[in-house]
């Protein structure tokens, strides 16, 4: 059974100009023990999707329709009070910037034990002991001494490790990592991703990694959902998606990555995607990627209504009128 099932989730932000449809009909499910990567550019709704699940939306945002079933329990109808019991206990979340995610006036130890004392009935001593174990688990040496340090004595990578330790402290069933490596050095990034994968396995968690970095999902995710303008435009297993991308947007994203090897790499330039994402207030009744799509033309079906998310192959969903494999003259196994 899936640990998490999101069905037709719509989260809108109220603004003076009208509703911003940040998340507009997102559905996916996550099996136990698997990692889902949600990829997309800034403002595509990937973080809002995660925050909707946690019930941590800003006051101007609201979930309009849709259901979020976590472990057989509907989250959208829970009260704030009930959600507080789920957060940190069942679903944990780590955020982008570890430099600011820790309270500078509390010791690392206090901040790790905070979650446990909130959710588990632990004595101070037991919580402290567990905190030391957790710090060791995220590979911070001298854990016992470092427990009483304040956050300013920790480096960025170490702080993210502490954030992970905090997230793991109550053995949550689901860990949401919102851009967990974006604020870190490239070398530290890889270490954090390895750690996340290691711990996910050990703690038998499911994980959602939200990122704009194709490299990160390639490394960490089993399944990938590509989001564009509030919708999932393509969803498949990581291998399938990288080998046979179907949506023109996914193709373009992969094409925009720097190639490190192959013929003529030095001479080649990065390919940018022309145009910009649509305004999420005033969306036309058409494929949202159409204005930037190299294959769309104004007479197409996709200029008249939004394409449905359809299963083009077993386990491979795509929302486009022009998927790679259906394009005229398409080569078998298109190159990314």
């Amino acid at each position: 059974m899936a640990i998490l099932e999101v069905d037709d989730l719509r989260t809108y932000f109220k603004t003076r100009r009208g509703d911003v449809r940040a998340v507009d009909g997102v559905s996916f499910s996550l099996e136990r023990g698997r990692t889902l990567g949600i990829v997309g550019e800034s403002g595509c709704g990937k973080s809002v999707t995660a925050l909707s699940m946690m019930g941590l939306l800003a006051s101007t945002a609201r979930i309009v329709t849709g259901s979020i079933r976590f472990d057989g329990r509907e989250l959208t109808t829970l009260s704030e009070h009930e959600l507080e019991d789920v957060r940190g206990r069942q679903i944990a979340m780590i955020f982008q910037d570890p430099m600011t995610s820790l309270n500078p006036t509390l010791t690392i130890g206090t901040q790790i034990t905070e979650t446990m004392r909130r959710h588990l009935d632990l004595s101070g001593d037991a919580a402290r002991k567990r905190a030391i174990e957790l710090l060791e688990e995220v590979h911070i040496t001298n854990a016992r001494q470092r427990l009483d340090d304040y956050p300013h004595r920790y480096s960025g990578g170490m702080r993210q490790r502490v954030m992970i330790a905090i997230a793991l402290s109550c053995n949550p069933k689901l860990l949401i990592a919102d851009e967990p490596t974006t604020a870190l050095d490239v070398t530290v990034q890889a270490g954090i991703l390895d750690l996340l994968e290691e711990l996910r396995e050990e703690h038998e968690m499911s994980m959602i990694i939200i990122t704009h970095d194709m490299g990160v999902v390639a490394e960490a995710a089993d399944d990938i959902a590509v989001m564009y303008a509030g919708q999932i435009v393509e969803q498949a297993s990581a291998e399938e998606l990288f080998d046979h991308p179907e949506h023109p947007y996914t193709e373009a994203l992969l094409g925009a990555l720097p190639q490190l090897e192959g013929e003529g790499v030095r001479a080649s330039r990065l390919t940018a995607i022309p145009g910009r994402p649509p305004d999420l207030v005033d969306l036309p009744d058409a494929c949202r990627f159409a204005p930037r799509c190299p294959y769309a033309n104004p007479n197409d079906e996709c200029a008249k209504h939004v394409p449905e998310l359809r299963e083009i192959r077993q386990g491979h969903l795509v929302r486009s009128a022009h998927p790679t494999s259906e394009r005229a003259g398409a080569l078998a196994g298109a190159k990314p």
């Binding site: 941590l56 789920v86 940190g88 206990r89 944990a92 955020f95 600011t100 820790l102 979650t115 954030m163």
Partner: peptide
């Protein structure tokens, strides 16, 4: 601040 958001994310009241 992010640490307030983080605190909310661990279920702090």
């Amino acid at each position: 601040n992010d640490y307030v958001r983080s605190a909310r994310a661990i279920g702090a009241r």
